[in-house]
Write a protein that binds this DNA or RNA. Structure first.
Lengths: 339, 339
DNA sequence: TTCCGTTCCGTGCACGTGCACGTTTTCTTT
DNA sequence: AAAGAAAACGTGCACGTGCACGGAACGGAA
């Protein structure tokens, strides 16, 4: 692998000149610049990553993380991923500042301001989908502060990357699983988190799209909302089952799975009901193991937390953007055997 | 993050002395050594990774890779992962030597010798499971040449890590999927690769264990072998279907899936047969998309190739062993929607 | 005392990059 | 032609570690 020093020797100039050309800082004769670029191309120069990282350490990189703070199992797991990566980045002299906020645009903008006041070099953001936030992301990009969105994405912003799941595809996969795991006449009930939250409705749309296209033996008889709350989930699920005795399949698009399963068991319908859910968490893992839940589709929250920081750090030290093809968060299906 | 320099200043000694203590190279007074260790603990010293990597570059690390060379889709994908990582490691001044060999112990030992002659610092090995190879891995460890096994593991060797799948668990998961995706009376046929290859039989054992325990409605009516060959697979699968008209489920433990599916279609049984396979490859992806194959369990060969090199490199530069809990290769279920 | 060997410790370089600073050359203006 | 500004280029340090080399202190033997 060629180095700047080697290129400098080949071109008969000093390292500084080569550096100026390669990072176009100006102040170099057009003719020598051309010569240097030619040589760099000929030897296939790629900056050495260890050198880049070492040089970046002088800046004592500070990264900010903004996540939603209602303590639920999903965000807890995201946070674990953040702290895992924080420890790794510590040995690169890079520190992390975490802010947990409510699901609110104004709070989010304020949190960004606080991070800026503390002079962060980049931000990982679980964005609230509003024009004001999108404008802010673009403004940060102009200021040279890169933003990586995670958990959920926003449209048409200049975030350098998104690390999270494709919710429509997850919903389609849930539909595909239910289609494959059932036969005969199926009456499905949907337990939505909230029809105001994009990722919940996206999953539902994906689910519906799949079964309408491929599995006509499944009909959606009812849709209820549990507001991501376990107690409320128990109540609405029990009511749903009592009102629709024919229901023999359930799809939970979000949280409240524990309460919902408890309701199914309370009604004695666990043997006759095929249940598909999202995310594996400690409270519901045993339901999967025991077969109450047939399958669960995971959003890999730990990976979302760790990988988004990793990408941001790489961008700031080596200027590398992640390859588009590498989808870090896949649609991860778990059943009793592989959970 | 504390550095060696800072520790040296706190202890009132030079960097060299601290270095000697932390890497116990000897030649340092017991009293000062103790003092330095105390300070290092107090400031929670962790070596800086960028510095370590930079220092390691002087050695111009050379890594060897030994894979089985019969060109099949699985190993092709492993090789893609190797080359992907090769490119990444190139910017750390680290080069990779790849050897593809036949499935044979003697050839494998010879390949190791060749790599040693070229002075590699570590080896990624898809090991042939024989005592001679295990002894060799242990001998390499004694010589200071770490070995990472991949694709398949060997018992009781001193390899520093294994990057690959748990085949028994994969088989169990295949059984679980078939159990969930079928009902009524199921007569299953098993198309084994070879009963001489451990990972094939492991998967079969896992499959059998799962359905015997949990899914009594499934019975295994016949087991055939296709030797991982597409043409042979077509032949034995067709014969299997003709001899057992009652068969309505198939489990392919290894390669030859394309030929097998062609046989099912030739017999017109694709609508009535639930098929579970391993690995997604270009030739069989469309079968999954079209629903001929209900589900496939992937061994993530690309990740096996890239991650094993990554772990080896990290060990050689930073002396880091991967955390046991982080299982890089998961049991990855794919259906039409998420393939 | 002188000499030598051992133990203990400090210094300097290499790895590759970014960047501040200083120096030389070239061009413009009076 | 002289002076000053601007362009073009070189040098040195910092980042953190490993390691080779060399020097100081100390002991024992002649």
């Amino acid at each position: 692998m060629a180095t700047i020093k080697e290129i400098a020797e080949l071109a008969g100039v000093s390292r500084g000149t080569v550096d100026r050309v390669l990072n176009n800082r100006g102040s170099v004769n057009a003719k020598t610049a051309e010569k240097i670029l030619e040589i760099a191309k000929a030897v296939d120069y790629k900056p050495n990553k260890a050198g880049l990282t070492l040089a970046a350490q002088k800046r004592r990189l500070k990264l900010g993380v903004i996540l939603f703070g209602n303590s639920n199992p999903f965000f807890d797991e995201v946070m674990k991923g953040v702290h895992y990566q924080e420890e790794k980045l510590a040995s690169y002299n890079c520190t992390i500042l975490v802010k947990q906020i409510a699901y609110d645009a104004a709070e989010q903008l304020a949190a960004i301001d606080e991070l800026l006041a503390q002079e962060v070099h980049g931000i990982v953001l679980a964005p609230y989908n509003s024009p004001a936030v999108i404008d802010r992301i673009n403004a940060l990009y102009e200021m040279g502060i890169p933003v990586v969105t995670t958990n959920t994405d926003v449209d048409h912003s200049r975030r350098i990357a998104y690390v999270g799941s494709n919710d429509f595809l997850s919903g389609e996969t849930a539909g595909g699983l239910m289609g494959l795991m059932t036969s005969g006449e199926i009456h499905a009930g949907i337990v939505l988190g909230s029809d105001q939250i994009l990722c919940h409705t996206d999953r539902f749309e994906g689910f519906r799209s799949c079964i309408e296209r491929k599995y006509p033996h499944i009909r959606i008889d009812a849709v209820v909302q549990n507001q991501d709350d376990e107690v409320e989930s128990f109540r609405v699920t029990q009511e749903l089952l009592q009102r629709h005795p024919q229901i023999n399949a359930l799809y939970f698009t979000a949280g409240g799975v524990y309460g919902g399963c408890k309701a199914v068991i309370a009604e004695g319908r666990q043997r006759s009901t095929t249940i598909i859910t999202h995310d594996k968490v400690d409270t519901t893992r045993t339901f999967v193991k025991e077969g109450v839940i047939s399958a669960t589709i995971c959003q890999q929250p730990f990976i979302q937390g760790s990988k988004s920081l990793d990408i941001l750090f790489n961008y700031l030290t080596a200027g590398e953007l992640p390859e588009k093809e590498l989808n870090y968060v896949t649609v991860d299906i778990r059943i009793a055997e592989n959970i």
